[in-house]
Design a protein around this nucleic acid. Structure first.
Length: 229
DNA sequence: GCGACAG
DNA sequence: ATCTTGTCGC
């Protein structure tokens, strides 16, 4: 039951009243938000209890990197890591030309389609590493209307998601650079924080960091080859 | 009028 | 997001 995304606001930058243009997107977010689950809702356990219990093993990460030449050229990336070894088990990339602009508060309408497509592709192929949990580069309920990119992807993909922000909206920088963890879908903040801490070798949790690194690497090498033509 | 505004 | 070098330190 695939639905087409709502049309983007017309000329979000120059129209007379952008708040009215964004109404379509606001409505879409409000409708999707009704499906949001803000507590733990999954079959797996953090630690393998008995043989019968399902353990968390596959943690996904998604990110998008952009061309330095053409700002509309982007590379959507999905990686899946082993929860305990933090080794990358799966990676996939999708080159796209984005038509939807980035509008603060509406990041999902620009970035979610590519990322959801990568997830669907993996699920359709019955890949055994399909993530049990997904970490998203962007905020979850830490959002003006409580429905950021991580919530959007979580609801549409029906997956537990955690939002990882590197910059908080409307806040000032502290002396140290923090990350901002907010729940996306089907998970509690307490569990989300625990899982993030367990997957952090550096500042940013590995699933996001690997998606970030590999995504940037992929589009960089691609444009390097194009120059050698 | 000025500053802020996930990626 | 991207534009951008070297540098200090484990």
């Amino acid at each position: 039951m695939e639905k087409k995304s709502p049309e983007p606001p017309e000329e979000a930058s120059q129209s007379r009243d952008s708040s009215r243009d964004n109404q379509t997107w606001i409505t879409a977010q409000n409708i999707l938000r009704e499906k949001l689950i803000t507590e733990d809702c999954f079959a797996w356990k953090l630690q393998a209890g008995s043989k019968e219990e399902e353990a968390l093993r596959y943690v996904g990460g998604v990110d998008i990197s952009f061309s330095k030449d053409d700002p509309s050229r982007a590379c959507g990336t999905l990686v899946v890591l082993d929860f305990h070894t933090l080794q990358v088990l799966y990676q996939d990339f999708s080159l796209v030309t984005l038509q939807v602009p980035y509008v603060p508060g509406f990041l999902a309408f620009r970035e979610a389609p590519v990322l959801l497509q990568l997830l669907e592709k993996m699920k359709r192929s019955n890949n055994p590493f399909y993530p049990q949990l997904l970490m998203v580069d962007g905020n979850g309920i830490l959002h003006p209307r409580g429905f950021g990119l991580a919530c959007h992807i979580g609801v549409e993909a029906n997956l537990p998601t955690i939002g990882i922000g590197k910059n908080a909206m409307r806040s000032t920088q502290g002396s140290i650079k923090p990350i901002f963890i907010s729940i996306g879908h089907k998970i509690s903040l307490q569990t989300a924080i625990m899982i993030v801490q367990m997957t952090c070798k550096y500042r940013v949790p590995e699933p996001i960091r690997q998606a970030d690194i590999r995504s940037r690497d992929y589009i960089r090498k691609l444009e390097a080859n194009a120059k050698v033509k």
